[in-house]
Amino acid sequence: MNKMSWPGKIGVNLLAWLVSILMFFPIFWLILSSFKTNALAAAREPAFIFSPTMASYVNALVNSNYWHYALNSVYTAVGSTLLCVVLGVPAAYSMAFRRSKRTDFTLLWMLSTKMLPAVGVLVPIYIVYKNLHLLDSALGLTLIYTAMNLPIVVWLLYTYFKDVPGEILEAAEIDGASLVDNIVRIVTPLALPGIISTGLLAIVLAWNEAFWAINITNVHGATLSVFVSGFKSARGQFWANMSAASTLSVLPILVAGWFTQRQLVRGLTFGAVK
Protein backbone atom coordinates (compact mmCIF):
# COMPACT_ATOMS: atom_id res chain seq x y z
CA MET A 1 0.00 0.00 0.00
CA ASN A 2 3.02 2.23 -0.14
CA LYS A 3 2.27 3.32 -3.63
CA MET A 4 -0.14 6.21 -3.62
CA SER A 5 -0.15 9.15 -5.94
CA TRP A 6 0.39 12.69 -4.64
CA PRO A 7 -3.16 13.86 -5.44
CA GLY A 8 -4.43 10.73 -3.74
CA LYS A 9 -2.40 11.44 -0.62
CA ILE A 10 -3.59 15.02 -0.46
CA GLY A 11 -7.19 13.94 -0.99
CA VAL A 12 -7.04 11.35 1.75
CA ASN A 13 -5.47 13.84 4.13
CA LEU A 14 -8.06 16.50 3.39
CA LEU A 15 -10.84 13.98 3.88
CA ALA A 16 -9.42 12.73 7.16
CA TRP A 17 -9.00 16.26 8.49
CA LEU A 18 -12.48 17.24 7.36
CA VAL A 19 -14.02 14.22 9.09
CA SER A 20 -12.22 14.95 12.34
CA ILE A 21 -13.20 18.59 12.28
CA LEU A 22 -16.84 17.84 11.51
CA MET A 23 -17.08 15.19 14.23
CA PHE A 24 -15.43 17.38 16.81
CA PHE A 25 -17.10 20.62 15.79
CA PRO A 26 -20.23 20.36 18.00
CA ILE A 27 -17.97 19.87 21.02
CA PHE A 28 -15.79 22.75 19.93
CA TRP A 29 -18.91 24.89 19.50
CA LEU A 30 -20.08 23.95 22.98
CA ILE A 31 -16.76 24.99 24.49
CA LEU A 32 -16.72 28.18 22.44
CA SER A 33 -20.25 29.08 23.52
CA SER A 34 -19.30 28.65 27.15
CA PHE A 35 -17.00 31.68 26.84
CA LYS A 36 -19.73 33.89 25.39
CA THR A 37 -22.35 35.95 27.07
CA ASN A 38 -25.79 34.39 27.20
CA ALA A 39 -26.96 36.84 24.55
CA LEU A 40 -24.06 36.18 22.22
CA ALA A 41 -24.38 32.43 22.59
CA ALA A 42 -27.91 32.60 21.21
CA ALA A 43 -27.21 35.25 18.60
CA ARG A 44 -28.81 34.66 15.25
CA GLU A 45 -25.44 35.23 13.58
CA PRO A 46 -22.97 32.69 15.02
CA ALA A 47 -19.97 34.44 16.52
CA PHE A 48 -16.57 32.87 16.05
CA ILE A 49 -14.50 35.81 17.12
CA PHE A 50 -15.44 37.66 20.28
CA SER A 51 -13.92 38.74 23.53
CA PRO A 52 -14.29 35.75 25.84
CA THR A 53 -15.87 36.01 29.23
CA MET A 54 -15.63 33.68 32.17
CA ALA A 55 -18.97 34.85 33.49
CA SER A 56 -20.72 31.57 32.82
CA TYR A 57 -18.01 29.60 34.55
CA VAL A 58 -18.12 31.89 37.52
CA ASN A 59 -21.86 31.51 37.53
CA ALA A 60 -21.64 27.72 37.37
CA LEU A 61 -18.90 27.38 39.94
CA VAL A 62 -20.06 30.01 42.40
CA ASN A 63 -23.72 30.73 42.07
CA SER A 64 -25.33 27.47 41.17
CA ASN A 65 -25.26 24.12 42.82
CA TYR A 66 -22.67 22.79 40.42
CA TRP A 67 -20.42 21.53 43.17
CA HIS A 68 -23.20 19.58 44.83
CA TYR A 69 -23.84 17.64 41.63
CA ALA A 70 -20.18 17.36 40.72
CA LEU A 71 -19.40 15.88 44.13
CA ASN A 72 -22.21 13.38 43.67
CA SER A 73 -20.78 12.46 40.28
CA VAL A 74 -17.35 11.94 41.78
CA TYR A 75 -18.79 10.02 44.69
CA THR A 76 -20.91 7.68 42.55
CA ALA A 77 -18.35 7.18 39.78
CA VAL A 78 -15.35 6.60 42.03
CA GLY A 79 -17.32 4.74 44.67
CA SER A 80 -18.91 2.32 42.23
CA THR A 81 -15.57 1.80 40.49
CA LEU A 82 -13.80 0.96 43.74
CA LEU A 83 -16.57 -1.47 44.62
CA CYS A 84 -16.33 -3.01 41.17
CA VAL A 85 -12.59 -3.50 41.52
CA VAL A 86 -12.89 -4.95 45.02
CA LEU A 87 -15.55 -7.41 43.85
CA GLY A 88 -13.98 -7.94 40.44
CA VAL A 89 -10.34 -8.67 41.26
CA PRO A 90 -10.99 -11.88 43.23
CA ALA A 91 -13.63 -13.00 40.74
CA ALA A 92 -11.37 -12.39 37.76
CA TYR A 93 -8.47 -14.08 39.58
CA SER A 94 -10.59 -17.13 40.16
CA MET A 95 -11.69 -17.20 36.52
CA ALA A 96 -8.17 -16.78 35.18
CA PHE A 97 -6.24 -19.07 37.49
CA ARG A 98 -8.63 -21.45 39.17
CA ARG A 99 -10.56 -22.53 36.12
CA SER A 100 -13.29 -25.09 36.46
CA LYS A 101 -16.08 -26.39 34.29
CA ARG A 102 -18.30 -23.60 35.57
CA THR A 103 -15.89 -20.75 34.80
CA ASP A 104 -16.94 -20.02 31.22
CA PHE A 105 -20.60 -20.30 32.15
CA THR A 106 -20.20 -17.85 35.03
CA LEU A 107 -18.34 -15.38 32.84
CA LEU A 108 -20.97 -15.56 30.10
CA TRP A 109 -23.74 -15.22 32.63
CA MET A 110 -22.13 -12.08 34.02
CA LEU A 111 -21.72 -10.60 30.56
CA SER A 112 -25.30 -11.44 29.67
CA THR A 113 -26.58 -9.45 32.65
CA LYS A 114 -24.98 -6.46 30.94
CA MET A 115 -27.27 -7.13 27.98
CA LEU A 116 -30.35 -6.91 30.16
CA PRO A 117 -32.01 -3.57 29.44
CA ALA A 118 -32.07 -1.31 32.47
CA VAL A 119 -35.80 -0.73 32.03
CA GLY A 120 -36.27 -4.42 32.79
CA VAL A 121 -35.27 -3.82 36.39
CA LEU A 122 -36.19 -0.14 36.79
CA VAL A 123 -39.56 -0.52 38.47
CA PRO A 124 -38.63 -3.03 41.19
CA ILE A 125 -35.45 -1.17 42.05
CA TYR A 126 -37.40 2.06 42.26
CA ILE A 127 -39.91 0.48 44.62
CA VAL A 128 -37.32 -1.28 46.76
CA TYR A 129 -35.24 1.90 46.94
CA LYS A 130 -38.31 3.81 47.99
CA ASN A 131 -38.85 1.40 50.86
CA LEU A 132 -35.19 1.42 51.85
CA HIS A 133 -35.03 5.24 51.59
CA LEU A 134 -32.32 4.94 48.96
CA LEU A 135 -34.19 7.03 46.40
CA ASP A 136 -32.42 10.26 45.53
CA SER A 137 -29.28 9.16 47.35
CA ALA A 138 -25.77 8.96 45.97
CA LEU A 139 -25.37 5.65 47.77
CA GLY A 140 -28.29 4.12 45.92
CA LEU A 141 -26.90 5.31 42.61
CA THR A 142 -23.44 4.00 43.49
CA LEU A 143 -24.84 0.55 44.20
CA ILE A 144 -26.67 0.51 40.85
CA TYR A 145 -23.59 1.67 38.95
CA THR A 146 -21.60 -1.10 40.57
CA ALA A 147 -24.03 -3.68 39.20
CA MET A 148 -24.01 -1.90 35.85
CA ASN A 149 -20.22 -1.92 35.45
CA LEU A 150 -19.29 -5.10 37.31
CA PRO A 151 -19.63 -7.42 34.27
CA ILE A 152 -17.38 -5.17 32.20
CA VAL A 153 -14.85 -4.83 35.00
CA VAL A 154 -14.72 -8.59 35.64
CA TRP A 155 -14.40 -9.26 31.95
CA LEU A 156 -11.57 -6.77 31.43
CA LEU A 157 -9.69 -7.84 34.54
CA TYR A 158 -10.06 -11.44 33.43
CA THR A 159 -8.45 -10.65 30.07
CA TYR A 160 -5.61 -8.78 31.80
CA PHE A 161 -5.05 -11.50 34.39
CA LYS A 162 -4.92 -14.14 31.69
CA ASP A 163 -1.84 -12.38 30.34
CA VAL A 164 0.00 -13.11 33.60
CA PRO A 165 2.00 -16.28 32.92
CA GLY A 166 0.81 -19.22 35.01
CA GLU A 167 4.41 -20.22 35.73
CA ILE A 168 4.92 -17.02 37.72
CA LEU A 169 2.04 -17.96 39.99
CA GLU A 170 3.41 -21.46 40.36
CA ALA A 171 6.81 -20.07 41.20
CA ALA A 172 5.14 -17.94 43.85
CA GLU A 173 3.25 -20.94 45.15
CA ILE A 174 6.49 -22.86 45.53
CA ASP A 175 8.05 -19.78 47.13
CA GLY A 176 5.36 -20.07 49.77
CA ALA A 177 2.82 -17.49 48.66
CA SER A 178 -0.71 -18.00 49.94
CA LEU A 179 -3.78 -17.25 47.87
CA VAL A 180 -3.96 -13.75 49.30
CA ASP A 181 -0.21 -13.22 48.73
CA ASN A 182 -0.73 -14.34 45.17
CA ILE A 183 -3.54 -11.87 44.55
CA VAL A 184 -2.07 -8.94 46.47
CA ARG A 185 1.67 -9.30 45.89
CA ILE A 186 1.90 -10.92 42.46
CA VAL A 187 -1.17 -10.59 40.25
CA THR A 188 -2.35 -7.14 41.30
CA PRO A 189 1.00 -5.37 40.86
CA LEU A 190 1.62 -7.23 37.59
CA ALA A 191 -1.77 -6.29 36.16
CA LEU A 192 -1.80 -2.80 37.68
CA PRO A 193 -1.80 -0.91 34.37
CA GLY A 194 -4.75 -3.02 33.26
CA ILE A 195 -6.56 -2.52 36.56
CA ILE A 196 -6.07 1.23 36.36
CA SER A 197 -7.37 1.55 32.81
CA THR A 198 -10.28 -0.72 33.67
CA GLY A 199 -11.09 1.56 36.59
CA LEU A 200 -10.84 4.60 34.35
CA LEU A 201 -13.32 3.07 31.92
CA ALA A 202 -15.72 2.27 34.75
CA ILE A 203 -15.47 5.88 35.92
CA VAL A 204 -16.21 7.18 32.42
CA LEU A 205 -19.26 4.95 32.05
CA ALA A 206 -20.66 5.81 35.49
CA TRP A 207 -19.98 9.51 35.06
CA ASN A 208 -21.88 9.71 31.78
CA GLU A 209 -24.80 7.57 32.91
CA ALA A 210 -28.20 9.23 32.53
CA PHE A 211 -31.00 6.66 32.78
CA TRP A 212 -30.64 5.74 36.44
CA ALA A 213 -29.53 9.19 37.51
CA ILE A 214 -32.67 10.76 36.05
CA ASN A 215 -35.02 8.05 37.22
CA ILE A 216 -33.97 7.44 40.80
CA THR A 217 -32.42 10.72 41.85
CA ASN A 218 -33.71 14.22 41.84
CA VAL A 219 -31.71 16.68 43.87
CA HIS A 220 -30.06 15.24 46.91
CA GLY A 221 -28.25 12.34 45.28
CA ALA A 222 -28.31 13.69 41.74
CA THR A 223 -25.26 13.77 39.48
CA LEU A 224 -24.13 16.12 36.76
CA SER A 225 -26.31 14.29 34.24
CA VAL A 226 -29.34 15.47 36.18
CA PHE A 227 -27.89 18.93 36.72
CA VAL A 228 -27.15 19.44 33.04
CA SER A 229 -30.49 18.02 31.92
CA GLY A 230 -32.08 20.86 33.86
CA PHE A 231 -31.14 23.06 30.90
CA LYS A 232 -33.19 20.98 28.52
CA SER A 233 -35.88 23.57 28.07
CA ALA A 234 -33.50 26.53 27.68
CA ARG A 235 -34.82 27.58 24.31
CA GLY A 236 -32.31 30.23 23.43
CA GLN A 237 -31.89 31.37 27.01
CA PHE A 238 -28.93 30.74 29.28
CA TRP A 239 -27.05 29.02 26.50
CA ALA A 240 -23.71 30.25 27.72
CA ASN A 241 -24.52 29.02 31.21
CA MET A 242 -25.67 25.72 29.77
CA SER A 243 -22.50 25.46 27.70
CA ALA A 244 -20.23 26.23 30.64
CA ALA A 245 -22.00 23.71 32.87
CA SER A 246 -21.87 21.11 30.11
CA THR A 247 -18.22 21.76 29.40
CA LEU A 248 -17.37 21.41 33.07
CA SER A 249 -19.27 18.13 33.17
CA VAL A 250 -17.80 16.71 30.03
CA LEU A 251 -14.21 17.86 29.75
CA PRO A 252 -12.45 15.75 32.41
CA ILE A 253 -14.16 12.63 31.18
CA LEU A 254 -13.45 13.46 27.56
CA VAL A 255 -9.76 13.62 28.37
CA ALA A 256 -9.98 10.37 30.34
CA GLY A 257 -11.84 8.85 27.42
CA TRP A 258 -9.06 9.78 25.02
CA PHE A 259 -6.69 7.74 27.13
CA THR A 260 -9.00 4.76 27.47
CA GLN A 261 -10.03 4.32 23.84
CA ARG A 262 -8.55 0.83 23.64
CA GLN A 263 -9.97 -0.37 26.96
CA LEU A 264 -13.28 1.11 26.02
CA VAL A 265 -13.51 -0.96 22.89
CA ARG A 266 -12.17 -4.05 24.66
CA GLY A 267 -14.54 -3.57 27.56
CA LEU A 268 -17.69 -2.74 25.65
CA THR A 269 -17.28 -5.56 23.14
CA PHE A 270 -17.13 -8.25 25.87
CA GLY A 271 -14.71 -10.29 23.77
CA ALA A 272 -17.08 -10.50 20.83
CA VAL A 273 -14.35 -8.83 18.79
CA LYS A 274 -10.84 -10.15 19.12
Binding site: P165, E167, I168, E170, A171, A172, I174, I186, L190
Partner: peptide, 10 residues
Protein backbone atom coordinates in the same frame (compact mmCIF):
# COMPACT_ATOMS: atom_id res chain seq x y z
CA UNK B 1 11.92 -25.14 41.02
CA UNK B 2 13.42 -23.46 37.97
CA UNK B 3 10.90 -22.92 35.21
CA UNK B 4 11.30 -22.98 31.46
CA UNK B 5 10.22 -19.34 31.20
CA UNK B 6 12.23 -18.54 34.36
CA UNK B 7 8.99 -17.17 35.84
CA UNK B 8 10.77 -14.23 37.46
CA UNK B 9 8.48 -11.68 39.09
CA UNK B 10 8.65 -8.83 36.56
Amino acid sequence: MVFQSYALYP
